[in-house]
Amino acid sequence: MPAAPRRGWVATWFSGPRRHQWWGLAFVLPVVVFFAVFSVFPVLFGFAISLTDYSLLDPPEFVGLDNYRNLLGDKLFITALGNTLLFVLGATVPVWAMSLTSAVLFDQAFRGKLWLKTIFFLPVLPPIVVVGVVWRMLLHPNGVMTAFVGLFNGATEVPWLASTVLAPLAMVAVHDWSVVPFFMMIWLAGLAGVSPELREAARIDGATAWRVFWHIDLPALRATAVFVAALSSINAFQTFALQYVMTADPGGPANSTLVLGLLVLKYGFQYFRMGDAAAVSVVMFVMILSVTAVQLRFNRRG
């Protein structure tokens, strides 16, 4: 009896009992490789750099966790961390409230709703850098916003972006203006999933609009709320472009708008302290991961 021809190992894998698994793996491999090269490797490389003293001009020198230890006493890091946390606060809670309120309003039927919704959505369309450039002009000390305020108090110059008090507030205001419509659309999608029968039944039972919202809409929006909270928090923690574009001196005046994203740039490409820049990046990564994990856990419990 002639011996059966030997099959190669590739043919064996792809035609054996687990052939579906191997085919599946083959199909996802390009994406896995892409993700590994462009996402996982940079994260690991960034972590490795954070354990070194590296000035670009000289080879990296391993310093263990020194860069992290130094951050604890680093005034600039503490300033940037404080500014970032304040920005996150201003760029999340008011955004959730404003976007949900506007979503509830646009969920009602009224004349011209479509036009108004389109106009309301416009700030989301330009890239954030363009938003920053436009608002930098509007917030010129003698610009349009000053002229508007001047109608009420006669001011001809307001240092919107040159005052250590006003500049951080301006960043939050511009950020919120540009993202509220985006989150409103997400809330609207959530509201569209709320059963109209439930609302109707509640109304027949005599519930007011507020009680319908509080007892029917809001519990049904839990998953949407977690998504909005997670996305807006990540977005706020990573803020960089507005602070970079809007202030004459990125992070200024007097570091009042210096956020962690800008500190990474400053340490890396202004001071050429790559190890410290990477350590700040890792801290940012851990912070974002923690906040997101807490939010997801909250959703699961619900």
């Binding site: 005052s163 250590t164 001196d249 200024g252 005046p253 007097a254 009042s256």
Partner: peptide
């Protein structure tokens, strides 16, 4: 420069 800003703008 940041110290200057604290005196002038802060």
């Amino acid at each position: 420069m940041r110290g200057r800003d604290r005196m002038m703008q802060g």
